[in-house]
Computed example of a mutant assay.
Amino acid sequence: MTPKQLREMNFSLWCDFVQRDFLDCTFSALLAQADSLLNGATSNPSIFATALQSPQYAQQKESLRGLDSKSIYEHLAFADIAKAADILAPLHRENAHHGFVSIEIDPFLCDDAPRSIDEGVRIFETLNKPNVMIKVPATQAGYEVMSALLARSIPVNATLIFSPDQAKACMEAFALARKHSLAQAVVSIFVSRIDRAYGGATLGIANAKECYACIQDFDDHNSRALFASTGVKGGDLPPTYYIDSLLLPNAINTAPLDALKAFLGRLHTPEFEALRVDDRIVKQTCGETREPNRIIHYDKLLDEGLVAFKQSFSTMLESL
């Protein structure tokens, strides 16, 4: 496998990290060394909850004193997202599938479709960057939100996908909007959380491939699978495990910094050339009759993910 071959099969890396000093000092350099494989970034409430505690934000926080905490958060976070969007803009102008950065709707609106739609539109219009994606959790209300935003030509990142049924529901929501819009969309499949919940390091990969197959079945060239939650926490696995195991066509892997740096550090080495895409497994998965995996409690994982994002968001707002 070579970087050129990965690019030709439309495989991309996105950075699962947004922080001001990183954007100011490191992100552009990382893009330059990535041989065009790294072409996007993602954020979430947990990332911002940690990032906004950095001393780099102290002066701007002081200037915003007197505003409510959510307004302060938006001033800080929107500045970072806009900066990332500007850094990625040349990639987006060159290829409309690349160069995106995503920001999530207030997680407390996850079950309120009308308010989530209004918030998604407001965030996108406020940032006024064509390469910003609005992240929407894959709840029942979320499917309506995804479709409505996409129909307005607002790029969408459907997040917290654990099950093939969720992946299929996201693609069905996208399909409803496609008569109005060809805006880019991704379906963020969470991988390592399944392994951490159920032990081992294979169930998450197998489940992710099954979700990927559901997405591929729709043959929507403006929607792709995005493998998220790909950080290795503990154990003996290498930091690149969840990237190496999911090198699939028309897919994105959004990875934490340590995994990204380890993966990119092997470019043009014999170790990197030894990586392979297992087309046989992919084709077999795509052709199987899929049933819900009885081992994985998908609803529980989704609920836990929503709770974690809400807790992070609350903690962050309280700190402001």
Rank of each mutant, 00 (worst) to 15 (best):
Q5S: 11
Q5L: 06
R7Q: 14
C15W: 03
D16Y: 05
V18W: 13
D21H: 06
C25K: 13
S28E: 13
A29K: 15
A29Y: 10
A32N: 12
Q33H: 08
L38A: 01
L38S: 01
L38E: 01
L38W: 00
G40D: 00
N44I: 07
I47K: 10
F48L: 02
A49D: 11
T50K: 13
T50E: 13
A51K: 02
S54K: 06
Q59F: 14
E62T: 14
G66I: 13
L67W: 12
L67R: 14
S69W: 11
S69Q: 15
S71W: 06
Y73H: 13
H75M: 10
L76R: 11
D80P: 05
K83V: 08
I87A: 07
A89G: 02
A89C: 09
P90G: 12
H92Y: 13
E94L: 12
A96E: 15
H97W: 14
F100I: 06
V101Q: 11
A113P: 04
S116F: 06
E119C: 10
G120I: 00
I123Y: 00
P130E: 01
I134C: 08
K135R: 08
P137K: 03
P137A: 04
T139D: 03
V145S: 03
A151V: 07
S153T: 12
S163L: 04
D165N: 15
K168W: 14
A169W: 08
M171S: 06
M171Y: 08
E172Y: 09
A173L: 12
A177G: 09
H180G: 11
H180T: 12
I189D: 01
R196C: 00
A197E: 09
Y198T: 03
Y198V: 02
A201C: 10
T202E: 08
G204C: 02
I205R: 05
A206K: 02
A206Y: 02
A213V: 04
D217G: 09
H221Y: 15
H221I: 14
N222L: 08
N222K: 09
S223P: 06
R224Y: 15
L226D: 07
T230V: 04
G234D: 01
L237A: 07
I243F: 01
L247M: 04
P249D: 06
L257K: 12
D258L: 01
A259D: 00
L264C: 13
E271R: 13
A274L: 02
L275Y: 05
R280M: 15
R280G: 07
V282S: 12
Q284P: 00
Y298L: 00
Y298H: 00
K300H: 07
K300M: 07
L301N: 01
G305D: 04
L306D: 03
A308S: 11
F309I: 05
F309V: 05
Q311K: 14
L317G: 02
E318W: 07
